[in-house]
Design a protein around this nucleic acid. Structure first.
Lengths: 229, 229
DNA sequence: CCAACAGTTCGGTCGGCGCCGAAGCGTTGG
DNA sequence: CCAACGCTTCGGCGCCGACCGAACTGTTGG
C-alpha cells in the first residue's frame, strides 16, 4: 500500500461472517449493545464478546459503557466508507425469501449510511438542493450556499453545530444502490439527525439501516423541495 | 448491507496476507504474471496458483493468458477503490528497515494508484489544473474545460481516446497520503499513461507502485505547470 | 440484600484453509 | 524434438481461530 500498511489485518476482521454481520448492523449509525450485536451475528454472547474485543483492538469499533451495558459503534466515518467500498465489490447473497426481497426494496428507497441518509430519497435531496442552489457541487464535495444555509436553518437543521464540528462539512458519498452521490459529512449527519428527530423517517427495525418514510415526511419533502416518493 | 451482499466473502479474499500482498502489487495497475505475484506474496508457485484462482473466482482479479504465461490484473477500478479505502483503516505495519522507510518516503512523492497518478505530485497537478482553469471542480469529480482539453492535447495526452472510453471521465479520488483529491477516471489514466510513456516518471521496481521522477519529468512539470518537486 | 441480567473469561473441540513438494500438462526455443 | 519453463493439480500436514457451555464479575431493581 501507500505507506506500508497491513491491509490483511483490517480485512481479516471483516472476513468473519459473524463480525461482518455485526459491522453491518453498526452501519446503521446507531450504537448497539453487545447482546444486540450477538443477535445480529447469530452467535452466543460469549462468542460475540470475543469478536467485539477484536474489533475494538483493531480500531474498527469504539465502545462506551453505561451501567451493565456496553455500547459499540463504528470508530470513524472512514470505517463506514471502507465497508461501503467493500460492499461494492462483494458478491450478492442469494435472496432467501420474499420477505428478504421486500426489505431490499425498502432499503433502496431510504436508509442510513452510517450517520447520514442514503437511497433514492437522499440522492433526490441532493439533486433538489443543487438545482435550487442551496448546495454547490464543488471539488471533493459540496459547498453550502448562503441561501442554502438559510433554507436549512429555517427547516430546523443545526447548521451552526455542524460547522463547528471538526469533520469535513459537506462531503459527497457514492450511493451504493443509485450509483450517484449523496450528502455526507457533518452537514449530512445534521440533516439525517434532524429528519429522524422530526419523524420524517422511522427505522424499520432497531439496529437496521432501512428507513420508512412517514406521511409527515412525504408531506415535508413534497412541500419544501418538491420531492415526491 | 444495502441490498444484501456478502461482505465477508470479499473481505475473506483480502484477509490472507499472501493474497493481500498480491493485490497490493496489482494496485500498481500493471498486469503481472503468476510467478511475479508468487514472489510478491512470498509463497511458492503452487500456493499462489490456488490463491489466484480464488481471486478470479471472487471477481477481484481478471486473467488473460499469453503463451505459457498468465497475466493477472484487478478486475475493475471499484476493486482498487475498495483496497484503498481498506488501506485507510488498516494499522500501519512496523517499519522493518531503513530501506523500507526510504521507499515509503518515495511513495508519498509519486506513485500509481491503480491506473492513475497519486502522491504529492498528483495532488499538485490537480491544484495547478484547477488554478489554471484547465479543470473545474464539479459535483462528484471534475470537468475538463475547453482550455484544459486544448492544453492537455497539446501536451500529448490522448483526450479523445479517454472521452470515448465508457469509464467515468474525470473522477476525483482521495489521495491516501495527502488526504486531498487527485485525478482518477479515464482522464487520470490517460494522463498517467502519457507521462509514463514520455518518461517523466519511471517505476522504481516492476510490479511496485512507487515512481521516480526523472529529470525530464521535473523539467516538464516546472515548465508546463510551474510545479517544483 | 438478593435475584435477575449483561457481559467476560476459560477450556475443550473441531473444521477450514494455507503451506509445500511432487507430478503432470501445455508452450517455447534451441 | 527435447529440454527448460510457467503454471496447475493433488495429497498430506499442521495451525489458527470460531464455537459453545459453564463459571465468574459487576450492575440494577425490587
Amino acid at each position: 500500500m501507500t505507506t506500508d500498511v497491513d491491509l490483511a489485518a483490517a480485512a481479516r476482521l471483516i472476513a468473519e461472517p459473524a463480525r461482518a454481520a455485526m459491522l453491518d448492523a453498526l452501519l446503521s449509525g446507531q450504537a448497539l449493545a453487545a447482546g444486540e450485536l450477538a443477535r445480529a451475528g447469530g452467535i452466543r454472547a460469549s462468542t460475540a464478546s470475543g469478536h467485539l474485543s477484536q474489533l475494538v483492538e483493531g480500531g474498527l469499533v469504539e465502545v462506551t459503557h453505561s451501567g451493565r451495558h456496553r455500547y459499540f459503534r463504528l470508530a470513524s466515518p472512514d470505517v463506514a466508507h471502507a465497508l461501503e467500498a467493500l460492499g461494492a465489490i462483494s458478491p450478492p447473497r442469494p435472496i432467501r425469501s420474499l420477505r428478504q426481497s421486500r426489505t431490499d426494496e425498502a432499503m433502496t428507497l431510504a436508509r442510513t449510511c452510517y450517520d447520514h441518509l442514503a437511497g433514492v430519497v437522499a440522492v433526490s435531496l441532493v439533486d433538489a438542493f443543487v438545482a435550487g442552489k442551496l448546495l454547490a457541487a464543488g471539488g471533493d464535495g459540496f459547498t453550502l450556499t448562503p441561501a442554502g444555509a438559510e433554507a436549512l436553518t429555517d427547516a430546523g437543521v443545526d447548521i451552526a453545530g455542524a460547522r463547528s464540528s471538526r469533520r469535513a462539512f459537506a462531503r459527497s458519498c457514492l450511493d451504493f444502490t443509485e450509483r450517484r452521490p449523496h450528502l455526507a459529512g457533518a452537514l449530512g449527519a445534521a440533516l439525517c439527525a434532524h429528519t429522524l428527530a422530526e419523524g420524517w423517517f422511522v427505522r424499520r427495525a432497531p439496529g437496521h439501516r432501512a428507513l420508512r418514510i412517514t406521511d409527515e415526511g412525504r408531506r415535508q419533502l413534497l412541500k419544501r423541495w418538491n420531492i415526491g416518493v
